[in-house]
Amino acid sequence: MNEFFIFFQTIIPELLQGTRVTLKIAGGALFIGFAVGLPTALIRVYGSPWLQLIVTGYINIFRGTPLLVQLFVVYYGLPDLGLTFSRLTAAYLTLGLNSSAYQAEYFRGAIQSVGEKQMVAARAIGMSRFKAIRYIILPQAFRLVMPSWSNEMISIIKYTAVVFLIAVPDLMGKAKMVSSRYFAPISTYIIVALIYLVIVGLATLILRYVGKRFETPGLESMETATR
């Protein structure tokens, strides 16, 4: 046990460096996913038919292919078309766009479960479509989307691990280096697993706190409503 502790002390600084990269990629991907996914969802629900078709295609491509394949296409494939990205940019871009497709679907579901009648009520009192979405539909949709968005956050944190395959020095990448340097795969990966667990746990707690802050009587997420 003592030996493990000393090993832990030896490798932890390097793993924490990797953790910082992992957190940055996860945060960036979730942000890109939100910034692209929300408008995508709005187009999916309120857009003209051909716009809907385009975003449905976009969503299906990203949800229907493996993340790793997407990463390789972006990093190794797109340079053939003259689009070259740095490793880190490729990581942000791939995970971000991938997440945007999932987030778009979660937001679409939430928007649709707010219901057409709320839109009618807002329109009937003289609010424009834009204002109705801004003040009536989205505030409710954000509350409803919390449980599935929380799942998406957890997924993205864990999926960042694939970026070590294009040699991004994230937590997983650092782990790979450390474990082969010290020939200690088991101890290393147990520590790495624990670090991921802590990140996911903290992130979930933060999100739950945010959810609680905005909780409204009658609009609890299903999870809390049935508890």
Partner: peptide
């Protein structure tokens, strides 16, 4: 003004 059968207040 329009008043609906099911009220349609904004629940949030």
């Amino acid at each position: 003004g329009f008043v609906f059968q099911q009220f349609h207040l904004y629940p949030h």
